[in-house]
Design a protein around this nucleic acid. Structure first.
Lengths: 218, 218
DNA sequence: TATCTGAATGAACGATCATTCAGTCAGATT
DNA sequence: AATCTGACTGAATGATCGTTCATTCAGATA
């Protein structure tokens, strides 16, 4: 069987697809979506011209598969983090935010891909559906956690508003990390988000935030 | 002189450039940056093929001029709002936030343009410089206002962190308005941002926020 | 070892792109 | 009314794009 090395003339279908998708991510980040050509992607993957049509039928198929890959990876990451976190809403919310600034999520190449597809989502309904599906589930979980926290701590906070603000902060920081990575590091971004949580839910996050600040000082 | 109607065979240089830039904005929003071609823009403007090279030398020149236009317009809007606002930091900060959700800024076509260029900023240093220049001045003003507010109200808040979070919220909400405009209206976005300010600086913004909520209820 | 299989190649294709430029035309000048 | 000016046109051009397919080749099979 051909489930061996990924570099030879033969590799499993899944391996080739992954190899091409990763090359696509690098190409989009390096050249922008408008200058991402099939031959460029093929060269980046170290393969030949026709390879993309062989594995994805068309360039559009490759781009769609790339978006799907990034979306699925992100989703499984935060679902796993939620699974692994303690049952209390504060820990779960913290886990969610920490995933958002995990190196694998904040990878600048992947951020470039996210924003490339977001920016074309108005023109391409297919992109929009995929992205909107991501938002819907993520927002639902985050809103629910905020509600539980507000009830638990008797905070004077609109949980829906807080959840929206928190999601917006994350997306805004992602943009900052993409456009001016010098100004915003992952750690700083995490501090901004956690700082917001500490203000909203002081009983639950004040400690968490302080601890993180000290860790930074040392 | 030819400073007359914009639709005839003759129009002033500035008018034609504006006409073409506006057509470009619509094209980017409708088709995405990757599918924005010179002939499409020319058709959208109701003019002929070669018109772009005549007024902007190249397609790249047109795209750059479009980005510059959007950047400049945004800058002059918030500078004017700052000028018109009362001198106290709270009013000035509120004015800044209100501009961010002004119809002219939140116009979905323009948002598509912003994100199109942001998403390619990693690949194109020229785009990055233009966008980074925007951020630098805006952030500086916002940070300064937060500092003044913290000092004035003796809040237990890190002003730099607050300014960053506020800027991130704005950008995140812009993204939401672009990708899923059904979920986030301008008014709701403004409420999210103002809600954040009300939490951070209750003495200064609690009233403002309540008033806005009542206005919404009626 | 010889044969078979299908993954991978890369030259070739038509389509589409940005750009050019000789020609056209509206409006100002004389 | 005749001429001039320069903004504008649009067919033509070369370059580049995505896609195709006859051919090649590595590894499994007999």
């Amino acid at each position: 069987m051909g489930t061996s090395k990924s570099s030879g003339r033969t590799a499993s279908k899944a391996e080739r697809r992954t190899q091409l998708i990763e090359a696509t991510i690098r190409c989009i980040a390096a050249n922008g979506l408008s200058d991402t050509t099939t031959s460029l992607v093929a060269r980046e993957a170290g393969l030949s011209q026709g390879i993309i049509n062989l594995h994805f039928d068309s360039k559009d198929g490759l781009l769609l598969a790339t978006l799907e890959r990034v979306v699925d990876e992100y989703r499984s990451l935060w679902e796993a983090a939620l699974e692994a976190a303690p049952a209390d809403p504060a820990s779960r919310l913290a886990a969610l935010v920490e995933v958002d600034f995990h190196p694998s999520v904040c990878d600048r190449d992947k951020l470039a891909v996210w924003f490339a597809f977001w920016s074309e989502s108005k023109a391409r309904p297919t992109y929009r559906k995929l992205c909107a599906a991501r938002d819907r589930d993520y927002d639902r979980v985050m809103r629910e956690l905020c509600r539980e926290l507000v009830a638990q701590g008797r905070y004077d906070v609109d949980p829906d508003l807080a959840a929206r603000a928190l999601a917006a902060i994350t997306e805004g920081l992602w943009l900052d990390m993409l456009v001016s990575p010098r100004n915003v590091s992952r750690r700083e971004a995490l501090r901004v988000s956690m700082g917001y949580l500490a203000h909203l839910f002081p009983q639950h996050f004040a400690e968490h935030f302080k601890l993180q600040a000290e860790r930074k000082a040392s």
